[in-house]
Simulated scan of single mutants.
Amino acid sequence: PPLSVRLEPGGSLRVESGGTPPWWSYWVPTVGPIISGVLAFLGAWLGLSIAQRNTLRTIEAAQRTTEASVWQKANETELKDLLGKLDGFYG
């Protein structure tokens, strides 16, 4: 047998007002955007401060590496001079 659906009209819908809205509903349109703006600002500030700290650490590591390279080159030059003097003395 075919399936049949029968729709009958119900009564009309009635929306009743519950009185005055709660006190906080007046503040939501103002306070909501302010809170979101403050959270966005804090998120951006936190991200930038972490990026700055990471950049400073990278620069410090590069400076230490450069210093070590300069000292190694100075030691190699000093060793070359000493070997030259020893070769001149014993040669």
Rank of each mutant, 00 (worst) to 15 (best):
L82I: 15
S17H: 09
Y26K: 12
R53C: 08
G19E: 04
E8Y: 00
R57E: 14
R6I: 02
S49G: 02
Y26S: 12
G32C: 08
I34L: 14
S17F: 06
G47Y: 06
Q72H: 10
S69M: 11
E16W: 05
G84P: 02
L83S: 08
L82N: 10
R57A: 14
G37R: 04
L46Q: 07
E78H: 13
T77P: 04
V38D: 02
P21G: 10
L83G: 02
A44C: 05
W71G: 01
W45G: 02
Q52D: 13
I34V: 15
L83R: 13
A44N: 04
E67V: 10
S69Y: 06
A44V: 07
L39D: 03
V5D: 01
L56A: 13
T58H: 12
A51C: 07
P21H: 08
L46G: 07
S4P: 02
N75V: 05
K85C: 09
W24N: 03
N75E: 15
T66S: 12
G43Q: 03
R6C: 01
E76F: 11
G18D: 11
Q52N: 12
T77M: 06
Y26I: 09
W27Y: 11
L48C: 06
P33K: 09
L7I: 06
G19V: 03
E16Q: 10
P9E: 09
E60S: 14
L56K: 12
G18S: 11
P1L: 00
P21S: 11
T30K: 10
T20C: 07
V31P: 01
G88I: 01
L83E: 08
P21Y: 05
A44H: 05
G37P: 05
V15E: 04
E8G: 00
A62D: 13
T58A: 15
S36M: 08
K80G: 04
A68N: 15
A51R: 11
P1H: 00
I50V: 15
R64K: 14
N54G: 11
F41I: 03
W27F: 13
G18F: 07
T65M: 11
L79A: 15
E78S: 14
V31H: 02
R64M: 14
A61L: 13
R14S: 09
K85S: 10
R57G: 11
L39W: 04
L83K: 12
G18Q: 12
G18H: 09
T20A: 14
V38E: 05
G91L: 01
G10N: 05
N54H: 11
D81P: 01
T55R: 13
G47M: 03
A62H: 11
S69A: 15
L39A: 07
W23M: 05
L79R: 15
G32E: 07
W71S: 09
A40G: 02
S4A: 00
W71P: 02
W24P: 01
G18I: 06
L39I: 03
A44R: 05
V31N: 03
G88A: 13
I35A: 06
A74D: 11
L7N: 00
R14F: 04
L82P: 01
W45T: 04
R14I: 06
P9F: 00
L48D: 08
P22A: 06
L48Q: 12
T30A: 10
A68T: 09
T66E: 15
T20V: 10
W45P: 02
W27V: 13
Q63M: 13
G91P: 01
P1I: 00
A68L: 14
